[in-house]
Simulated scan of single mutants.
Amino acid sequence: MGLGRGATGDEEWQVAVAAAVFGAGLGLALPAPAGLIVGGVPADQTGAASGMNANVRTIGGAIGTALVGSIVVSPATVRGYPPESGCTSGFLLLAGLSAAAAVAALLVPRGTAAAGTVADGPRRRTRWMCGAVGRG
């Protein structure tokens, strides 16, 4: 069974397995950019960097959802349901964009953290559970 076949809904367990793998991938992938962004800016700019990351991710998700949604439903049938070809076209677009993003990520230069950034030295840690702020 491939994940693509499981997404067609042949069996409920196939859809559950595909959704679990997808969810695990998102859970592992989404926090990483936020850590890189916050670690690459001066300590006094971490709030602005984190906020911009959240904004850009939200706007990108909305635009991507609208784009793929319009591709999926554009060849709608007489009954109003999109044919399977619409879903195939949407997933092919996503696969191409994912491959382009992977290539772009490989082209990003690697380096060390600049002086004065959060990743440069000791950080200020916030203990959210008890509300106390400490240095360490």
Rank of each mutant, 00 (worst) to 15 (best):
T65M: 10
F22L: 14
T58E: 07
L30K: 08
G27V: 08
L92Q: 13
N55E: 12
I71E: 01
L93F: 08
V73Q: 09
A132S: 11
G134A: 15
A32W: 02
Q14F: 01
A132T: 15
G69V: 10
P122H: 09
A7D: 00
G51W: 03
A7Q: 08
G131H: 04
A24P: 01
F22M: 13
F22C: 11
L92W: 10
T88I: 15
A54W: 05
L3I: 14
G90V: 00
A16K: 09
T46M: 09
A48F: 12
R135Q: 13
G51H: 03
L97Y: 04
G9L: 07
V56L: 13
A114V: 09
T77V: 07
R125G: 10
A54K: 08
A19G: 10
A104C: 03
I71S: 04
G116S: 08
I71A: 04
N55M: 15
A76I: 11
G25C: 01
V41I: 09
W13K: 03
P83T: 06
S70V: 12
G9Q: 06
P33K: 00
R135E: 15
L26D: 00
A101K: 04
W128F: 14
G69R: 03
D120Q: 10
P42V: 08
L30F: 14
L28G: 12
G86D: 02
M52W: 09
L92I: 14
C87N: 12
G121P: 01
T117H: 02
C130S: 15
W13F: 10
